[in-house]
């Protein structure tokens, strides 16, 4: 490990330790905001792990999240909670693998369209199954898990995402993905199995979304299809990740924090206008900051450096 990496590692550990102290403030609103930010950080970072290098825009987050929540709701009486979280991760991974196998060989448009309706599709199927076979629509998830425990769980999951992202970036897989993102033809002629690489990352992001759904289930406490599968979530995640920037592991985080706060404010004051906010955010990203805030800052820094070296 280089000196710089050691320094970064120490910084990250200190930052996580400080963040873990947040519940000690006993500030209800801050904690709830912390849960939201931690949740979106996990979702947006794991989304960017897949979508950043491959340029495939996945809108499947909500589907995997909902599946994870449902795993907990269905199994809470029979299995211990930690096992359910693991199972939810597995379910998310399996769902991602199935979707990926069907669509990742094809062009990006087909993939977006397929994932666009995925949450709604799973919602329809779950509703139908519940109506016809289980009788009741909603399910209660009553546990002794408090909000601060949810926060810590999500924080741990965030640490796991960053660790995996860091490992992947230093692995053959990460290198392969950078090549695929540049030129898939070259990748194939270098001996890279691009479909398998994309699938691996998509499965990782699916597993994380599933686990997040499972961790959030006790907070929702009452789970029914329209609560668990909200396609809005998928779009929020895409916006946050792109807003921050997907070319760096910590890029999405830069988008998550301001957007979560902004979203809270708008949702509280103008609840019907969150859709408009989503629209404006998308347009802003495409037309003004296509490489995210981080990309913007980095290119500004590079330009400044060039000026200095020319002077």
């Amino acid at each position: 490990m280089t000196a710089r990496e050691t320094r970064t590692l120490i910084l990250v550990v200190v930052a996580f330790a400080l963040l873990a102290c947040l519940p000690l403030l006993r500030h209800g609103y801050l904690l709830s905001l912390g849960v939201d930010i931690a949740m979106y950080t996990v979702l947006a970072t794991s989304w960017a792990l897949f979508s950043g290098p491959t340029h495939y825009i996945s809108l499947a987050t909500a589907a995997f999240y909902g599946i994870g929540a449902y795993v907990v709701a269905a199994g809470i009486g029979t299995l211990p909670y930690p096992a359910l979280v693991a199972l939810a991760g597995l379910a998310g991974a399996v769902a991602a693998a199935l979707v990926g196998l069907a669509t990742l060989r094809l062009s990006g448009v087909y993939f977006v369209i397929f994932t666009l309706g995925l949450a709604e599709l799973v919602r329809q199927i779950v509703t139908w199954v519940q109506n016809n076979f289980t009788g009741s629509r909603g399910m209660y998830v009553l546990t002794s898990i408090t909000e601060r425990m949810i926060y810590w769980e999500l924080l741990a999951l965030a640490a796991a995402v960053f660790f995996i992202g860091w490992r992947v970036a230093r692995s053959r897989l990460g290198f392969a993905l950078r090549i695929i993102g540049n030129d898939e033809t070259v990748a194939a002629h270098l001996g890279i199995n691009s479909a398998a690489c994309k699938l691996a990352l998509f499965v990782i992001s699916g597993a994380f979304a599933g686990m997040v759904g499972a961790i959030m289930a006790p907070r929702l406490s009452y789970i029914e299809p329209s609560i668990a599968f909200t396609s809005e979530l998928s779009f929020q995640v895409v916006i946050m990740a792109l807003l921050g920037g997907v070319h760096r592991l910590w890029g999405p985080l830069v988008g998550v924090i301001p957007f979560t706060i902004l979203w809270e404010v708008i949702a509280a004051r103008f609840p019907t206008q969150t859709v408009l906010l989503l629209g404006i955010a998308f347009l802003l990203i495409v037309y003004l900051i296509p490489n995210g805030v981080v990309g913007r800052i980095e290119s500004a820094l590079r330009a400044a450096q060039r000026r200095v070296s020319h002077a």
Partner: peptide, 19 residues
Amino acid sequence: RILHSLTVLENVMAGAVFG
């Protein structure tokens, strides 16, 4: 076909790593 977001050395390493 050069991989433009990689450095020159990384372009060449791509061959060594995956071929």
